[in-house]
Design a protein around this nucleic acid. Structure first.
Lengths: 155, 155
DNA sequence: GCGGTTTATATGAAGCCGCACTTATGGCTG
DNA sequence: CAGCCATAAGTGCGGCTTCATATAAACCGC
């Protein structure tokens, strides 16, 4: 174990991995979230739209997991998005407990448009870094994710 | 510009930097947040406690920025934490608009204890990765933060 | 194919968050 | 020092998230 003592002169959080991750995520995404705000689209709605991009029918629980939300939150979010005509729910044919969620035409075009803006923002972000660093970023993050995928069961 | 088209067979979000960051932050922190849950401490409270560690009197706005929250949210969070005896507010002597926030003795000991648990979790997280990768993580995140520090004014 | 367990989604109550706004103080310029 | 803008903190309200729970369907062993 051997936890080093708090380095003097450095704030705890400035050397705390979880905080650095949270802050980096926040700062980078806040730039794009500002664009969403201007268009009157909430972050949660954008997450659902992007999560449904290219997916033919996600489940409610699956979407919640994807969007880093609780399942009841997703149910209500989908209620609102369905009311706005962005998504449709349809029953799963094989398992009647399951609800499949898909984009409507409106939802699809909104998702496409936002995804384009998102890619442009991403390119802009990556352009601020030296190429080697930019390369390393995604693969490092993927490595973290791979090693932290929640132990499904009996981990 | 030249935005590449959506690679076929790969979900949008699986190659989207902002999502990878958000997901990595979420997954890594959720492990520690589970510990907080068991102790009945909210994530927001922990953030404030850790933000005040080693700091002699943060401002409300400064704390909000540090904790990635809005200032009004911080005001109300501090109300609750003050009621619980974790922090104290005191007027700044030089600028009467400013309120300085500091840990109480209870708050300090809770912060110390949690920071220890956080360091242990961090060590555990880093241990799952090859040393070179673990090294790279923090410095890469710091590089991102350095290049994305919000343009204060006239950016 | 019948109970018991597990999984998927929905619901209701309670609390937190964020926006817009208000109040109070400081700082700058003429 | 008067007037004006900038900055700090607090407040009210509406909406979203969450926790705990309910309901329904599927799976599993016998």
């Amino acid at each position: 174990m051997n936890i080093p003592p708090q380095p003097s002169g450095v704030r705890f959080i400035d050397d705390y991995l979880v905080y650095l991750l949270a802050r980096a995520a926040h700062q980078v995404s806040s730039e794009f979230h500002e664009q969403l705000r201007r268009r009157g689209i909430s972050v949660a709605v954008w997450r659902v739209l992007s999560g449904l991009l290219g997916s033919e029918g996600e489940t409610v629980t699956g979407l919640a997991e994807l969007c880093l939300l609780q399942q009841p939150t997703m149910t209500k979010l989908l209620d609102r998005m369905a009311r706005q005509g962005l998504v449709v729910r349809s029953p799963d044919l094989k398992d009647r407990r399951v609800v499949r969620v898909a984009l409507t035409e409106d939802g699809q075009s909104m998702a496409d448009e936002l995804a384009l803006a998102a890619r442009m923002h991403e390119a802009d972000v990556l352009a601020r870094h030296p190429p080697a660093e930019a390369e390393a970023m995604k693969s490092l993050l993927r490595a973290i994710l791979a090693r932290h995928d929640k132990p499904r069961r009996a981990g």
